[in-house]
Nucleic acid binder design. Structure first.
Lengths: 210, 210
DNA sequence: TGCACTACGCTACGTATCGTAGCGTGGGAC
DNA sequence: GTCCCACGCTACGATACGTAGCGTAGTGCA
């Protein structure tokens, strides 16, 4: 919705992005400092030195602003190259999420937004479309590669694998102590992967891999 | 709004349990209907036909009341017998959680409370002490039995196993579509268990995975 | 230059909620 | 009969959401 409104023909005060950037920056800071509870429209307006009405002209509600911040942060997450073998690729993918949650405001933001994402239909939808689906498709690519490499079983369930990999991470973030060991990702992958690995080549029901 | 008016004729009975039970019941209903956002002290007071001050004489804040509801609901969850083999026991334990989340208000309540549990320190602490720790100790018992039965590896990490089992469930509840297939628990267990299973004695030492 | 448009600032609402304070009252305990 | 405690009720003060109305400055255009 806000994206549509942003088609302002550069008529503004010569700096069309400045106001929006200030708002988003202020929202990000407040989210980082005190979670969603600290994210108040009045606080954002104050910190961004902007009228409250200006915020509402761009986002219809506090939740939309929060979602904007989240989606903007996740845009930096998608980049995930593929390593040589499947296991390393999966570790890399998962560790990307872990690192983001550990080292950026993303963890704090996710903690505060979890209920809204789970409750508000449109927010949850947006998050799924922009983040979960993206991760699943990335994961699907890796799986397909792993299958063709003979490292993964052909009947590998991507959705299940996705939940098994990322579920523990978010669970620990939300309901656990929120502390991640440095090797969290690899430990999770190693625990989950055997169930999806291709049968050892000792069987004869499959042609041997190259 | 929905049904608001439950005329405020005084309860009169004065039975100390009656008032508290009415409050908790009202809170439970509101939580189930609309998550934490629907849980307002004024709404609880209205529905319970109780003065708002009466609620505050028993709980210091809205969060404490919400936590009371959650903990009360989880008290019914702990009962988990142990089946014959380890796999069945784990499936049973996990399926208990899945069933509660699927068929009771617990799922809705958890959705609404997730952020508060993750954000509020005392709430999260209480939830961990009363629920997570309980589940982990239950799981530890099963693991110990499994090890002594020769079904699990002796160096099985209970904390990791716990996160791997329950993480996907909560992840799906909060960030996924929230729909659970009937065999969710067994599929998760089957996917995770091989990594923790004891090596069959018949299998000779195999080459390490690439 | 003058006009329209647009985005913004500012003030002031109306509503909802939290949590608190003060006062009144009725039913048991003694 | 008296006292006390738990409750009900009203009224706050504070904070926040989201909206409405009005004024203004910069910009494009004639």
């Amino acid at each position: 919705m806000t994206d549509d409104d942003r088609t302002k023909t550069a008529v503004g005060d010569g700096s069309p992005d400045t106001v929006e950037a200030a708002i988003v920056q202020a929202a990000r800071e407040l989210l980082a400092e005190g979670g969603v509870k600290a994210l108040t429209m009045e606080g954002v307006a104050r910190r961004a030195a902007v009228a409250k009405t200006t915020i509402y002209r761009r986002w219809r509600s506090k939740e939309e602003l929060a979602l904007h911040v989240v989606l903007e942060m996740t845009n930096a997450v998608v980049s995930t190259p593929a390593a040589a073998d499947t296991r390393s690729s999966l570790v890399e993918l998962l560790d990307g999420a872990v690192t983001i949650l550990r080292t950026t405001l993303m963890g704090q933001v996710m903690r505060g937004l979890a209920s809204d994402l789970a409750t508000d239909r449109s927010l949850g939808r947006a998050y799924q479309d922009r983040v979960v689906t993206l991760r699943k498709s990335r994961l699907a690519d890796l799986v397909q590669r792993g299958v063709s490499l003979g490292e993964l079983s052909p009947d590998c369930d991507v959705d299940l694998l996705h939940d098994l990999l990322f579920g523990p991470v978010y669970y620990r973030l939300l309901m656990g102590d929120g502390a991640f060991a440095a090797d969290s990702a690899s430990r999770i992958v190693d625990a989950v992967l055997p169930a999806f690995a291709a049968r050892p080549a000792t069987e004869q029901d499959r042609p041997p891999r190259p």
